[in-house]
């Protein structure tokens, strides 16, 4: 997760600048600390040491050690300004637009041009600029995938943008970086970068409605409809709740509960049984489902690839 190991142009630009800063600050640190230690050691009180001369100041020295920091500040501010404008430039016309909405405590992800809706896992193609449009449905959150680059806040009543191009396929963890209440620590996510072909395949499969259930899963769908799930969750062609994450292709996600647990039948069953126990403060209530209904529901949700 190290910021020293970026996988996107945004991260690289920041990393280059940061490395530059580390160089300068380490240089100053070593010089000044060494000077300090040398002065302390050389002028320590020893028997026979003369009474010091009362030196009150020196104009030349004052000018000198004012100009040195002025110079260093000038040198480091030039690449800073350049990087500010480069990283906040207007995105290229071919940029992929993704709307990310922060909610206590999960991420809603929409691809308005591709008609795809998902949650907590942002899939992007490598090599193509991506512009995240960041919004909040409640309090302030902050989007941060360290290896992609810096963070940008999600604020109610405002749309923020973060543009980057990922250069290496892979799965990169991230999490909310602005304190957003009880389960702030549990608001995690994954950014999945795919080759353009794999990304197109992913988009295709996510645009299709989910496969109709068979066998046990059919009972699961009935539980979904009857058990109160529909009030909050959307499954395309079945329900249109907007309070919780869209579950149309839930089965193909790697994690549940905003990146908190692996998407396994066991974890899912435990989650549905008592969400606040798995994630303090979770808005999803305990639902009165029988064991049979529960296991059928788990099979059904898992089948929504």
């Amino acid at each position: 997760m190290s910021t020293f190991n970026p996988v996107a142009d945004l991260g690289w630009r920041i990393d280059t600048l940061f490395t530059n800063f580390i160089g300068w600050t380490l240089f100053i640190l070593v010089v000044v600390e060494a000077l300090l230690v040398w002065v302390i050691w050389s002028f320590r009180d020893r028997p026979g040491r003369e009474e010091p001369k009362p030196v009150h100041g020196h104009v030349g020295l004052e000018i000198g050690w004012t100009l040195i920091p002025v110079m260093i500040v000038t040198i480091i501010s030039v690449p800073t300004i350049a990087t500010i404008f480069r990283t906040q430039a207007t995105p290229a016309p071919n940029a992929l637009r993704i709307e990310v909405t922060g909610r206590q405590w999960w991420w809603e992800v929409r691809y308005p041009e591709l008609n795809v809706v998902t949650a907590n896992e942002i899939v992007v193609p490598v090599g193509r600029p991506v512009t995240l449009e960041l919004k909040s449905a409640d309090v302030i959150h902050s989007f941060w995938v360290p290896r992609v680059g810096g963070k940008r806040d999600l604020i109610g009543g405002k749309v923020n943008r973060l543009t980057f191009t990922v250069d290496t396929p892979g799965t990169y963890p991230g999490q909310c970086a602005e304190f957003c209440g009880l389960s702030h620590a549990n608001m995690r996510m994954l950014l999945v970068a795919e080759s353009p072909e794999a990304f197109d395949r992913w988009v295709q499969s996510k645009r299709e409605p989910s496969v109709p259930p068979t066998g046990v899963a059919e009972g699961g769908r009935a539980a979904f409809m009857a058990g109160g799930c529909v009030a909050c969750h959307a499954i395309r062609g079945l329900s249109s709740g907007v309070v919780g994450p869209d579950l149309t292709h839930f089965g193909s996600r790697q994690t549940i509960a905003a990146g908190l647990f692996a998407n396994t039948p066991e974890n899912l069953a435990a989650w549905i049984k008592d969400p606040p126990a798995m994630k303090p403060g979770a808005r999803m209530p305990k639902l009165p489902l029988g064991d049979e209904q529960l296991s059928a529901l788990v099979v059904y949700l898992g089948s929504l690839k």
Binding site: L17, F18, T25, T83, I84, T87, G149
Partner: peptide, 27 residues
């Protein structure tokens, strides 16, 4: 004080740079 404050001052210069601060803010 001098030796430790210096370190805090220098890391402060780092996040005075907005792009660098994008990574460091709230971390």
């Amino acid at each position: 004080f001098i030796s430790m404050f210096l370190i805090g001052g220098l890391s402060g210069i780092m996040h005075a740079s907005p792009p660098v601060d994008m990574q460091q803010q709230d971390s």
